[in-house]
Amino acid sequence: MTYLFVFISVLGLLAALGTVLARNLVHAGLFLVAFFFTVACQFVLLEAEFLAAVQVLVYIGAVAILLMFAIMLTRNVQGDMTTTTSRTWLLPALVGGLGLFFVLMFGINDQVGLKGRMTWASASTRPEIPRAGEGKPVTPRSAAINDMGRMVGREMVTRFVVPFEVAGLLLTAALVGAVVVAYREGDDAESPRRGIQPTRLHGAVTVQATNGHADGSDLPSTASVTS
């Protein structure tokens, strides 16, 4: 079991690194799918199969697909799909990220058990949960693990009813707002096709000359002049 965990974790971390580092956005998206899947596997290892199912359905089934659509829709007009990383932020990012990682590692190892709990470092076994149908009295705790779908549903309509409703509201708001925001009117009022937009791109000046079409062609031909 530990080998399985190590295998999944290594895969997951590699996928995460791939997502962050892949120059091609589509590859990054695929790596992200792999990462989501390893997280679902982790949930299974944690005996939260319901959550693993939700993870696969929502993240891989919806979120990743949505991201793929976004990548397709925003494919660079220059024709290349690679994106670069910003050099100026590289060092601070590495320092910040690795620093946070080491602080977290140290913190996890060094955690003090409050109120007589086990420390995180010493929690090598999880609390024993009687399996269903073993004749033991069913506690909420064991029901939560053996019958998670039902318990999640029950929690959603009792204790967490307000978060549940708020989540509905949030999704509605996101839907409505995203439709409005992404809706394309007939005329993009300030689209860069109207003129020349010099944009600075770390030092180099990229001029997008886009108004060269007297015929009003819809295809923006972008001359990327890098000086």
Binding site: M1, T2, F5, S9, G12, L13, A16, L17, T19, V20, F35, Q42, L45, L46, T83, T84, T85, S86, W89, L90, P92, A93, L94, G96, G97, L98, L100, F101, L104, M105, I108, N109, W120, A121, A123, S124, T125, R126
Partner: peptide
């Protein structure tokens, strides 16, 4: 037999990778 720590390490590592990604990607 999987210690809790391992999951936490995995989470911390992927969180840090995500943070680096946020800062690095344009």
């Amino acid at each position: 037999d999987i210690p809790l720590n391992w999951f936490l390490y995995f989470a911390a590592a992927s969180f840090s990778i995500g943070l680096i990604g946020v800062l690095v990607r344009r």
